[in-house]
Every structure is written in C-alpha cells, then in structure tokens.
Design a protein around this nucleic acid. Structure first.
Length: 576
RNA sequence: GGACCUGUGGUGCAGUUUGGAGUGCACGCCGCCCUGUCAAGGCGGAGGUCGCGGGUUCAAAUCCCGUCAGGUCCGCCA
C-alpha cells in the first residue's frame, strides 16, 4: 500500500516516486492552485504539495503519491528531519475520513488526564507517546537479549494463581466451576519462579505482568511489568552482576551511553546518609548526625534517641511562611516539629545562629551544631529529633523536596542497596514482620541471632535504585527446611499456618531444592526514567487513573446479573 | 482512611483575592479569500449547565457547606 515511511524521506530519495500513508497532521491551502499536507506516521512528518485544492481535514487517513524532490531554495524547514525534501505533484486518496480530534495531536499542550485516557488511541498518536512506546520496546528487547546472553530461559507462569495472604492485596478472580472459590492474579511470580528452580530450570527470566490491588501513585499502577529473574547455584554477587549487566545494557540501548559500574551501599549507610532505603545519589545534601552534640542538652525537644540535620546551602533567606510550610510538611510526615537555624554573621564578623529555639541551646551546642553540619553563613540548618527511623524518614523527604530534581532528569545514577534488615517492626501480636518476604535468607554473619535478637539480623536482600526510585528488589532464598522453620517460628507462623499458606512450595522443597536467588526489575519505572517522564502512565499504552478507573472502557463496571449468577456471586451494600 | 492543588465553549488559559449581564486571550471548528506555506495569512461566523447539589445575598464562575472527578503526596505497596 505504501513505498516509503513519512519521516524517513531524505535528499537521497530525490527523484523517486513514493506513496506514503498516514494521518493528516496539518493542511494549508493557498487558493485553488496550491495546498500543503503535513502527513504523519509513526516515523514523523513529511510535507506533501498538492497542485490544487484538497478535500481533507486533520486526522483524515490518506495515501499520498508523488515525487520526492528537493524543496525550492529558501523553503527548507530546519525544524523537520524531512525538511529538505517534499513530496511533489501529489495525488491524495482518502482512506478514511475523521472527525476533528478531541484535542490537538501534538506535544505542545498538556491535556486533561481523563480526556487523554478516554481517547487514548488519539493520545498515543502524539510523537512523544509514540517515542515512549518504541523506547519501551527497545528497553524490553535489550533486557531480554541480556538475559538470553547470560544463559537464562524465558518461561511463562500462570496469571490464575492461588491466594497467598502475605504482602500486597491481591485481585481475586471468582471461579465459575468452583462456586465460592477464587483464583488470584499474582502480585509477582515469586513462588512460581522458585518452583522452577526446584524443577531444574537453573536460570529463569520473564517479562512478567504483576497485579497489586493497592493505592496508585505516579510510580505505581495496579498492573505493571517486571523483568523477573531467578537463578540456581548462585550467590548474591552473581545476581547483582546479572542484573547490572541487563540494566546497563538497557541504559545504553535507551540513551546511547553506558553508565559506569553500579555502586553498592548498605541499607544502614543509605539510611544514615540519605534517610531512605532508595537514595537519590545525584546530589549530596546528606543527613548529619547530631545526637552526640545534643547528648546532654537541656532542650527537651532535642533530648531524643536521634537528632539529625540537613543543610540547605544559601537557605537562610527563606521566608517565615516557607519555613512554616516546611514545618507543616515535617509534621505531616510524622515529626513532632522541625527546628530551623539560619547561620548568620554579626557586625563584628562573628558567626552565630538565628532561630526561635536558639535561646534553649547552650553556646557549646550552638557552635557544635554549626561545626558538625559544616554550615556557613547564609545557610539554613533543619533538624529533627525523634526515634531513628522517623528522623531519617522526615529529613530524607525534606532533602528530596529542597534539593531534589525530577527523577527523569539525567544523569542516571544506579545504586545497589544491600544488607536490608531481615525484619521490620512487629505485628499486632508482637511478632517481627518480614521486611522482604519469609523466604529471604538471613545474612550468614547474623543467622545465630535469629531468635535472640531478630531486630539486628540483616538479610541477603537487596534493592536496585535509580535516581531515587526503587527499580526492583530481590534476595537469596531460603532453600533449607531447618532455617525456614526457624524463620517461620520467629515470625510467629505455626507449622499448620505455614503448610496452609505455602504448603505447595515447602512440599516441593523437600524434593531437592537447589540454593537459589533472584530479582525483579520494574520495567515501567525504568522506561519512564529513560523517557524523561515522571509518571509511569506515560510509558503504558492503556493505564488507569489514580482511582483505578479506565475512562476509555469505563472499567470497572458492574457485572450483568447472569454473569454474577454463573460465578455464584451476589453484591452486598458497601460497608461504611 | 487522610492532606494539598485543580475543575470556565472542542483544547489550553485568564477572570475567583475585593460578588454586579457568560466578559476576555490563544488554538481548534464552520464559511469565504489567498500560488511556497510549514503553529501559514486575511475576513466573517458558530460554539457555555463556569464539574454537580445546597446555602448566604437584591445579585454567585466569584463567598460558605457538601459532593463528584483528576493530579501530587502520607498511610498502604512482604
């Protein structure tokens, strides 16, 4: 039907007759003897010259036949890759007329999200969205190639799986043949891939769809894709190497540049220095520990288990209302308050601090504060005093708000965060909660303290971070029944409970489970960052709104009565 | 479950603080003109439940209450 693609025509093609197909991006009529059509396909736009009037409108689907020629002197368009040439003396065939589009099909305006999603098929015609779809395919393909090259086997796993009441809320799929019972859609293929290790697959990967019925965010949709990986007879170092290879390849495929080796940081160091387990290491503004400075303070607000600070260079000029807003933000994040100190200089050139709480601090504490933070005249020091986790959480968030840049802005700073804690807090019954999942192998140096001091036990779990976004996580798995039993015991999971929840996995492990470890890389986030997008919706063909609504299909919708009956379902009124 | 921001012709905005006729801008759309434009240009025209409901007022896009939707975030996401 066509001989060329619109965006690919160049001066080398001059003299050839060409037929191109696409959508009318723009029509410009100059009377009865001349008209221009800018024709768009997925490769770009080319100008077609028609010797007369032309009965087309924006977004008509047309085929245009003409001769490629250099544009007349003085009429080239440097803004178009095809700007040196044009299709001349064209014949236009309308393949399909179109109503005016609901919004402009270009990248110049930010259209309301609902309108874009309702007409996603139009939205995706825009050059940026086309580029995002194509970038995603390219990244996807480079990841697959990297895994193939490293000896991994692609295996698909079921979407209809069994409930595993641990972790994220699952989407349920009622069974027609088994009234009252449900499958669930997998929050990840975690258990399936471990079974594949027992099955001797050795090295597995899959670009897997994962589904989690949790609240949506800029970096979270109900359904998302992971490069899911699992390998047998490997160490943590091996997994980090496999994944690094894949994501560095992906970066190179996406951007043309290969970042350097991925640095590694322990979880403890990440929390200490950045207040988060997913630090954006593109900028410093690190947390400073002041606990020692205020160890004997008379100031009640600072007599806490942990006192930390961040310094905003040149921040002493911040207005009172801005500081109040920061204080409100800190409180919203859980802090009791936020103490700020402007580093000032008096007429004699002596450095001092200006703060509503300065009068509560001794001279030594004031000078110690400035010395420890390294702040200089004109800077702003923000301090939080609370327990360790909360202090880190609040200052880590303020650090990002005050010093951070959009996630999608280069450079691309990958980071491995290793040695996560095995447990994170306690549940209602006072039992420790698994930080990763209950099949995570404890750190070999800490395993003896599993029962005596679980809070101090590190695990062989690790995260990959890119520009402050968690790109994925993984762990070395428990493959020995004795260690697994000890972990379940610490978690307060009885033998019966373990058997009912994970019986098929534990059963399989009795038949020869190899040591194994794995990882999963969030594909949507990875592509979004490379695409320069701060929301993964922009790299997903048909995403949902933050409330989980699809304006195009109007899903979710009530089921017809007959369908409900087939599934053995009956709606009940919404509970308050 | 909670906080904040947003909602005005098809699209993007201004107008809301300080109530006074649906007022304005740009794009798009329709008609006419135009032989080198490319965000073409000129002339003319159509197009509105100011998200929805209630309240205050002589009078509400504007003030108040509620509600719906979108966005960002906290909780949540092993």
């Amino acid at each position: 039907m066509r001989t060329h693609l619109c965006g690919t025509l160049r001066s080398e093609d001059v003299g050839t007759r060409a037929t191109v197909c696409g959508w009318v991006a723009k029509r410009r009529e100059h009377g009865e003897h001349l008209a221009f059509i800018d024709l768009r396909d997925h490769t770009g736009i080319v100008q077609c010259v028609v010797p007369g009037t032309v009965d087309v409108r924006s977004e008509y689907v047309v085929a245009v036949e003409g001769e490629v020629r250099l544009r007349p002197a003085g009429t080239t368009n440097p803004d178009l890759p095809t700007g040196e040439v044009e299709l001349h003396d064209c014949t236009v065939t309308v393949l399909n007329a179109a109503e005016p589009p609901p919004f402009p099909v270009d990248d110049r305006v930010d259209v309301d999200e609902v309108i874009r999603l309702k007409h996603r098929f139009v939205d995706l015609r825009r050059p940026t969205m086309q580029a995002n779809l194509r970038l995603r395919a390219k990244v996807n393909s480079s990841l697959r190639a990297a895994m193939d090259r490293q000896g991994f086997l692609e295996v698909e796993t079921p979407l209809l799986w069994a409930p595993t009441p641990e972790g994220a809320r699952e989407f349920a799929v009622p069974s027609r043949l088994h009234h009252g019972s449900c499958y669930v859609l997998p929050q990840s293929p975690q258990l399936a891939k471990q079974l594949l290790m027992v099955a001797g697959v050795d090295r597995y990967y899959q670009v897997a769809r994962c589904l989690r019925d949790e609240d949506l965010r800029a970096d979270r949709q109900f359904e998302f894709s992971q490069l899911d990986i699992e390998a047998s007879f490997v160490t943590q170092e091996d997994v980090l190497s496999f994944v690094s290879e894949a994501v560095l390849d992906a970066a190179e495929a996406a951007t043309g540049q290969r970042p350097g080796p991925v640095p590694t940081m322990t979880w403890a160091e990440a929390m200490d220095r950045y207040g988060t387990d997913k630090p954006d290491i593109r900028f410093a503004m690190e947390l400073v520990d002041l606990t020692a400075v205020f160890a004997t303070t008379e100031f009640r607000a600072f007599s806490a288990p942990c006192v930390k600070a961040i310094v905003l260079d040149g921040g002493a000029g911040l207005s009172r209302s801005r500081l109040d807003a920061l204080t409100d933000r800190a409180k919203a994040l859980g802090a009791k308050g936020l103490a700020w100190f402007k580093v000032t200089q008096n007429e004699d050139g002596v450095t001092g601090i200006e703060s509503p709480v300065a009068k509560f601090l001794s001279d030594d504490e004031q000078s110690g504060l400035v010395a420890a933070t390294g702040a200089t005249v004109g800077d702003l020091i923000l301090t939080v005093a609370d327990d360790y986790r909360l202090t880190c959480h609040v200052l880590g968030a303020l650090r990002l708000e005050l010093g951070g840049r959009p996630v999608s802005e280069g450079p691309y700073a990958y980071l491995w965060v290793v040695d996560f804690p095995m447990f994170d807090g306690v549940d209602d019954a006072g039992n420790p909660v698994a930080a990763h999942h209950p099949f995570t192998m404890p750190h070999p140096e800490d395993i003896d303290r599993l029962e005596s001091d679980p809070a101090s036990v590190r695990s062989q779990a690790y995260d990959l971070v890119l520009n402050g976004w968690e790109l994925g996580s993984g762990s070395v798995r428990v493959h020995r029944a004795d260690i697994q039993a000890r972990i379940f015991s610490v978690l307060g999971i009885s033998d019966e409970e373990a058997a009912s929840r994970f019986g098929f996995l534990l059963g399989a492990f009795r038949f020869g489970a190899p040591p194994h470890a794995g990882f999963a890389v969030g594909l949507d986030r990875l592509v979004a960052i490379f695409a320069g997008e701060d929301n993964i919706r922009e790299v997903i063909a048909f995403p949902k709104t933050q409330s989980g609504w699809d304006p195009m299909t109007d899903a979710p919708k009530p089921l017809a009565a007959g369908a409900l009956r087939d599934l053995g379902l009956q709606p009940i009124p919404k509970l308050d």
